[in-house]
Design a protein around this nucleic acid. Structure first.
Lengths: 250, 250
DNA sequence: TGTACATCAGTGAACGCGCGTTCACTGATGTAC
DNA sequence: TGTACATCAGTGAACGCGCGTTCACTGATGTAC
């Protein structure tokens, strides 16, 4: 039970002094430290790691640099994280939570006085628009959240939910459920629809961020994003698909 | 003018000997060399680089490892490539050309006795299916072709066209043009449609290859791919889009 | 037909970089008595 | 209330790795005379 996790219960002078230092804030970081113990090193490293991710994506989340920024020796990190992947894993979760917040905000911007059907659709499209907005506004965090080239499955990933308690994937799922409930999407098309919709927006983000469309101007993406989500909306919801179109030979 | 680039014109014994060695094949590679000069080092490095890309994507295209595999000292590569990025740039082009071949093959598998409209559609969908097939069959090459995390724009990129002379992007463009010509797609929707379609398949590939869906089984992708391209087809072609759907507030 | 010589295509060793991680350690803290 | 001591959270130095790149060099080739 760390003294920062719970309010310091004891009133010894030593304890009070430490509590005072901590109350001054979990290290203003970046600057030199006066105490031997950092006080909140774990959180500080997480924040430094997130900054690194913001600046250059997952590859830039480098353990030594994080400790350097916090002003601590390199191996102090090993008191709080098993290894570099453990740190990266938690940074990934934080990045996903940030994405969830942006998506939630976009969904909440949909007028609540719309009728059920149009509202479900608009909220569904807002998921995609929010996803792409996050990608373009925070390219480093986006790639950290959704395009980590290494497998982090063995690293304990903490909660990736946003402020409202839902992960980006869960937000997408609920939006699709609402469309079915509002009868603007056939239940037949519902299974797996997350992956189809996600693919479209994820692909545009990746093409624009580190694909062949790297130098596509921001404005172009802003213009394409609504067209893309409309394409998905129409392609998923309007038709029976499958039956009414010849399947060719491919 | 390298002797390998053009047929060796002279008949001197020295020249003939060298020509004989070269005729025996551009180095069987991987094994020890008996001559001081390699004979076809540039091509051999390109091939080693492509093998590396196949095995582990763009990051694994490492100059030292390529020379090691060819059996040559590390800096011999600098006789043929300005730097590591120049080598990588050419490997990227080769990977794109391979993608073009797979896509072409998928398009050519569409029966030619279909009517113009259905055929145009089927060939368009074949582009997406071929793209995803290449991604799953050759994940390393796919990522090298379409997901290089560094900017290679300053590296001279050679031709990325496949055997039929078209790049993957050009194949997609011609498929879309054919749909407009066959009147199964409105000309109003044509501009920029490449990016919408490309986004969808690229996103699914990236999610399955190095995204959160990394452990999605191959079979799942095989099942989703046709649904995805159908979604795109319907979303792009069937409706007027834009006007007939409320735009919400997002 | 031979030979001097410029040029080409390699070699071997080294540099500097930055990383993750481990080792043996020490200063600070909290607790049992 | 003081004090011994276990435990916690840091330090500093080092290891080993692999990379891209450069340096001064040498062996092989092709050509002008």
């Amino acid at each position: 039970m760390s003294p920062t996790a719970a309010p310091d219960p004891d009133g010894t002078s030593a304890g009070a002094t430490k509590a005072t230092i901590e109350a001054a804030g979990p290290r203003d970081d970046t600057q030199t430290r006066t105490t031997y113990h950092h006080g909140d090193l774990r959180r500080a490293l997480l924040e430094a790691g997130t900054d690194l991710a913001r600046e250059g994506g997952p590859d830039k989340v480098v353990l030594r640099e994080a400790t350097r920024r916090v002003g601590v020796s390199a191996n102090a990190a090993y008191r709080h994280f098993a290894d570099r992947d453990a740190l990266l894993g938690e940074v990934v979760s934080r990045a996903q939570a940030r994405a969830a917040d942006v998506i939630s905000a976009a969904m909440d911007a949909v007028p609540s006085d719309l009728e059920q059907g149009p509202r479900a659709r608009a909220r569904f499209r807002a998921v995609g628009v929010g996803y792409l907005r996050f990608a373009m506004d925070e390219p480093g965090l986006f790639r950290t959240a959704f395009a980590v080239p290494v497998d982090l499955s063995r690293a304990a990933s903490t909660d990736a939910a946003g402020a409202d308690g839902l992960t980006p994937f869960q937000l997408l799922s609920t939006a699709l459920d609402a469309m079915v409930e509002a009868s603007v999407m056939s239940p037949d098309h519902r299974p797996g629809a997350e992956l189809l919709a996600w693919s479209a927006v994820h692909g545009m983000a990746m093409l624009a961020l580190e694909g062949p469309l790297r130098d596509l101007p921001r404005g172009a993406v802003d213009e394409l994003a609504p067209r893309l989500v409309r394409m998905v909306d129409l392609g998923l919801g309007l038709s029976d698909g499958g039956g009414d179109v010849d399947d060719g030979g491919a």
